[in-house]
Design a protein around this nucleic acid. Structure first.
Lengths: 163, 163
DNA sequence: CACCATTTAGTTGTGCCCAATTGAATTGTG
DNA sequence: CACAATTCAATTGGGCACAACTAAATGGTG
């Protein structure tokens, strides 16, 4: 089971558990704090944070099949299907079966959805000012997080159950 | 304060929206990737990631009222009540109304819950090796995230609609 | 052409997150 | 002491994340 991974830098397993508690809490808390600030700001746009993420992709990419959207956002249909229905109910997107592949569903912005972008332009600056980070620090943090995510995904692939 | 915030370093609002998309995605994705790796590792302990966070606190702090637990974890009773019930159903904790304050519920580890710590000691090292980060990088990231969370909480306090 | 594996969305079930509300216990103040 | 405000846990309801499964369409192979 617990194979021979060397203990780095003489850190004991007890210390590791404490550090683990800290990084778990920090990441979990940061994610939720971020989410919370967005919740407040996005309330006036009438959308949630995950819905905002979808809109960001659509504003950049234009129309997109659900599959592609899921790849960008790393979300599956179990999450996206109901979320997109809510966006459609809100009048921001339309969903249409692709003509050339009936399995696929194209998601595209409505007039209203496109127009929302103008109001959304004011959002990032407000979030940015809340962070007290400068642009370079944000970019740096982004890079570290991407590196972390890539490494974790890599590990998850090789690690069906035990290693 | 939402008064005249200057555009820093000549970053346009369009660029800001793109950067925002990036940092949002990065943080959201990192949080979920982390969650995913833990899900795999914790499956053999029979608990979820948020349940693991609760157990980490209990292993460090011993018995604790729900209120205190919520403060450590920044979670409210709406999240904790059902989660603790599941931990109780799993035989890891007991919940008992405090004798001296009948409003309060004390959460304490069972024998089984205490024993689980031994098996959990192996978890952090496996996660750590998955990150490919060294201990100093982890600590540094933790510090940045804590700083970010503190700043966001600060900003949220000043907004009329939170917590 | 017929058949089967794959691809794609959708559905279901479980768990988490948070806002808002409820109800009971406690505390503070007149 | 009486009673209003506060504290605390639980519940309800809406939304997200993910695993497992279903159903339909597509594509490859014999």
């Amino acid at each position: 089971m617990t194979s021979a991974i060397p203990l780095p830098e003489g850190v004991s397993e007890e210390e590791f558990l404490r550090l683990d508690r800290q990084i778990c809490f920090s990441l979990h808390a940061a994610s939720r704090a971020f989410n919370g600030v967005y919740r407040v700001v996005l309330k006036e746009l009438g959308i949630t944070y995950p819905q905002y993420l979808v809109m960001l992709v659509l504003w950049e990419q234009g129309e997109l099949p659900v599959k592609k959207l899921g790849e960008y956002l790393r979300l599956d249909s179990g999450t996206l299907s109901p979320l997109l229905k809510r966006l459609e109910a809100a009048g921001l997107v339309r969903r249409e079966r692709s003509a050339r592949d009936e399995r696929s569903v194209e998601v595209r912005l409505t007039e209203e959805g496109t127009a929302l972008r103008e109001r959304a332009l004011a959002v990032p600056r407000r979030i940015f000012s809340a962070t007290t980070f400068d642009v370079d620090e944000i970019r740096d943090l982004r890079d570290r997080l991407d590196r972390l995510t890539a490494a974790l995904d890599e590990a998850a692939l090789q690690d069906p159950t035990t290693r």
